[in-house]
Design a protein around this nucleic acid. Sequence first.
DNA 1: CCACAAACGCAAAGAATTTGCTTTTGTGGC
DNA 2: GCCACAAAAGCAAATTCTTTGCGTTTGTGG
Lengths: 192, 192
Amino acid sequence: MNAKQGPRPGGRSARVQASVQTAVRELLATMDRSEITVPLIATAAGVTPSTIYRRWGTLGELFADVAVERLRPDSDPIDTGNGWTDLEAWAEQYAEEMSSAPGRELIRDVLAAADTNCSQRCCSYSREQIAIMAERAAERGESFPDPEAVLDGVVSPIVYRILFGDAPTRDRIRDLVGRTMATTGSGSDERH
Amino acid sequence: MNAKQGPRPGGRSARVQASVQTAVRELLATMDRSEITVPLIATAAGVTPSTIYRRWGTLGELFADVAVERLRPDSDPIDTGNGWTDLEAWAEQYAEEMSSAPGRELIRDVLAAADTNCSQRCCSYSREQIAIMAERAAERGESFPDPEAVLDGVVSPIVYRILFGDAPTRDRIRDLVGRTMATTGSGSDERH
DNA sequence: CCACAAACGCAAAGAATTTGCTTTTGTGGC
DNA sequence: GCCACAAAAGCAAATTCTTTGCGTTTGTGG
């Protein structure tokens, strides 16, 4: 009975993992993803192809791993002083980032992975950002929709449109935010 | 000046295309997609691997092609006599089909393709089905939301949840439909 | 029926992936 | 500190997939 359950003893795994992921990011910045191969990454990272194959299995899983990391928000949503405009600003920025060519590819990489965990983590990132805005709104005494309602009403249409059609315009996003805010029970809060 | 612009002269392309797609469907029913390879498909279809590579480029594009075909609705949404319940029934069935393991894989295959056309067509299928329900509702004199609003309010949350988290429950879907129907201008139409 | 071009088959060349075995490298016990 | 252990990495051969050049087949339009 011991208290540790992680990779018990082990090798230099963390170091290798980092160098491989860095190599992928660098290559991704340089060339088209369809040109990138495992042997190429291995060379760039200073490891053997078999190391990558054994650790990630396929190129797709490796890309997904890197993509999830890049999709992680690096800061809290900006505070505009109002929940409504917080959400608007965040949604607009989110849509802009995700509808760019690199953004779309990140999402696709995540979804392509067999490991469902990747896409769930990606969703949680949004959920957490929304929760932060909700909490701030609560502290101000404003009403704010349930984070799940925001995922349904704002995030999912944005992502759906990006993946299956055309990226939503700014007006469209404001509209989505407006509709979602409107269903917040009281609906008494103004936009400004 | 002639009136034809399709693949002008040409080979036996249609026949080969069909046999390859059939082979993919059959293999997909038999084994896991990660086990399926181009040479395998080629053998099953009675063609050469190079034929597949030249026509589709990658396994992913071929899978996407087959997936789009399978995602095409084979019939109109059932007519329940009322727009609201039509939409509910359709959404529930859609969610059920798409949240199954095979359904999820179809969506992923479509999204993984470099050819954006595939995912757009997939979206159009839903749009068309919704338009049919809208038209029927109009004929009955009921109000019905704009098809785009249904895509935003009903389809996109369902797809988003399936892709990024857990498939929505039946109750959740009814809720989505309810909220979307409620924003239909007048809001005077009852559910039954 | 002929000429044409797209598409296919074939096979060799070139890459990528898998796999068995050896070596390295942290970790924990002594 | 030093040893023994096991996970992880390196290496290289074997396998499998992908690309490519070239000759052949097969519809289509004249």
